[in-house]
Nucleic acid binder design. Structure first.
Lengths: 324, 324
DNA sequence: GATCTGGGCGCTCAAATGAGCGACCAGCTC
DNA sequence: GAGCTGGTCGCTCATTTGAGCGCCCAGATC
């Protein structure tokens, strides 16, 4: 099985000739065999040897642009994702990285959405820039998946949903409610409001959702930063390590039920799990354990991210599951 | 035929996934199609696109060692050689380069020779080191192809022929005569000597010859340096641009008949042309036009050389014939 | 010399692949 | 709406390719 002994220069060169003609000139093995006056079986064996000895090197590369197709493909394989989009954006400027990833998510959304879809959306600082890159959309209905959190720049989830709906021309199903309330009774009362109940009634029909992944750590999740230290610790003790559209996720990538749930206006975990395609955006190497957990389960089907986080994820996957 | 539009990230990534699985994991297109849930035709088209757009990069590389298989293969194709051996030897130290090329020629000879062969040999400073690398040889008869020139270090053609014969255990057919004589009559007389005539009678049975290529310029040919300036110019005027075992070669790679021939004890050009396999050793970028001419015709079937000369040859071939 | 053994070679047959073709669809023009 | 056009898709059929097998030869062992 080794082949190509080092003390047979003519065979090494012959293998190189065969490899050139096969891989670079695109000739068939039969043609090569005829030209070189050897059997097609020998051609095949020489090619095998050339591959085995590393004489033929094949790389799946960056075709240009900022999309790293090779990393994206690896991520798909390693985590069983249906789609992954890894972009070569520099990490140094956080604001620019967020903006570009938001636009990239818009690109991905345009690419994935089809006229029959019903789009669900949640909010994050990264996603708030998504609409800027949307140039064309089918007129899909768009559903607000969670209550709103007050954004620093005033562009909130309702703005995002409406912007996206305007581009496609489809109906926007929005409602006015905060994401977190002080007590469960008030949350329940709010959920009974007609517009909110109406929006949530549409969730089962959502076919494509765009959400961000938060990590359960300071500064890495809007919710983490919005609650008390005691609540943070309680959830961490329950195994929460990531957060997806207000749904808490454990290390196995499945939703974790927490006492906080009753005080939140969000699509419930089981409902989120039933959405056929959930596209996530994640950002920052420090989030890698959280993202790893989130995409490990079956909840997340697509991921938009940048190269350094992607590499960190692949490293985690290699270390643990022994993925190739 | 272009495919993979830049504004379809998912298709680009899909192509990368397909390419990974096909080229790196060795799966069949049918398997890939089944895994990804697409048709095998789509797999084939994605692979074509990936090749076209340069997403898949294939290089035929150096497997290690000093033999550059890629350059060797290119040289074979560009000049229609049966065998080429290009070695990555540094150019800076001429003595070392010559020694290593001589040994490399020995390697090539061991590789190419088979028990039924009759080996013909001529001399050059490079070839004088050939025997040093010979470890095993079939017991082939070995024939001296030319008269001798006095070597600087005393190791002459007869020594070389005898050394090679000793390693293989075959008979050595040598004779005592200089390569160049002062007048034609004396040369004719010498040719009639029994041992010389005997050796030359064997030339038609020679199946494999090892010779060096000289360029028609000062310091690049033993013969050039051995004759008068007037003779040099006369031969140059006749179109001589290279020299092979004492046979003068024109720009078309075919032997040139010259007045000098009658004064030389060498295998005649037509006889040399009839040898089934002529293996040449050449050295030095300054010889590239001569080597190019010599290997252009059908006289030379194999070449042992170093990377920089090989590249110069390919450059010449590209410029002229438009070889790819 | 007889026998064994390992490796290279080329055959057969089934699976994989490519070339070419028509179906289908979206967008456009009239 | 009818008709045209450019593009993608998957089919058929012929060719190419791979897996496995037996042959043959060289070298080792007895």
């Amino acid at each position: 099985m080794a082949g190509l002994s080092a003390d047979r220069p003519s065979e090494v060169v012959l293998a190189a000739r065969v490899a050139r003609q096969f891989y670079l000139e695109g000739l068939s093995k039969v043609d090569i065999a005829d030209r070189l006056g050897i059997s097609r079986f020998r051609v095949a064996r020489l090619l095998d040897s050339a591959r085995e000895t590393g004489m033929v090197r094949i790389e799946i590369g960056l075709p240009g642009g900022s999309l790293d197709a090779g990393l994206s493909a690896e991520l798909c394989s390693a985590f069983g994702l249906k789609h992954a989009f890894v972009f070569n954006f520099p990490d140094d400027d956080e604001r620019a990285l967020r903006r570009r990833l938001g636009e990239a998510a818009g690109q991905a959304l345009m690419d994935l959405i089809t006229p029959g879809d019903v789009l669900g959306m949640s909010w994050s600082r990264t996603l708030s820039g998504l609409a800027a890159a949307l140039t064309q959309m089918p007129p899909c209905p768009i559903v607000q998946l969670t209550g709103a959190v007050p954004p620093p720049d005033g562009r909130d989830l309702l703005d995002l949903v409406r912007s996206v709906a305007r581009i496609g021309g489809g109906p926007a199903h929005v409602f006015y409610a905060p994401m977190i309330l002080d007590d469960a009774q008030m949350a329940a009362a709010i959920r009974r409001q007609a517009d909110i109940a109406g929006a949530f009634a549409l969730v089962p029909s959502v076919t494509l959702a765009v959400v961000a992944i938060g990590a359960w750590a300071p500064g890495l999740s809007t919710i983490y930063d919005a609650i008390t230290p005691a609540e943070r610790d309680a959830l961490a003790a329950q195994g929460v390590c990531a957060e997806l559209a207000g749904v808490f996720i454990g290390e196995d990538g499945r939703p974790v039920t927490t006492p906080l749930d009753s005080r939140m206006i969000v699509t419930p975990g089981p409902a989120l799990e039933r959405i056929p395609f959930v596209l996530c955006v994640a950002w920052g190497v420090s989030k890698s354990p959280a993202v790893c957990a989130a995409i490990r389960g079956d909840m997340v089907h697509g991921l938009v991210t940048h190269a350094s986080l992607a590499r960190a994820l692949l490293h985690l996957a290699d270390g643990r599951g022994g993925g190739r």
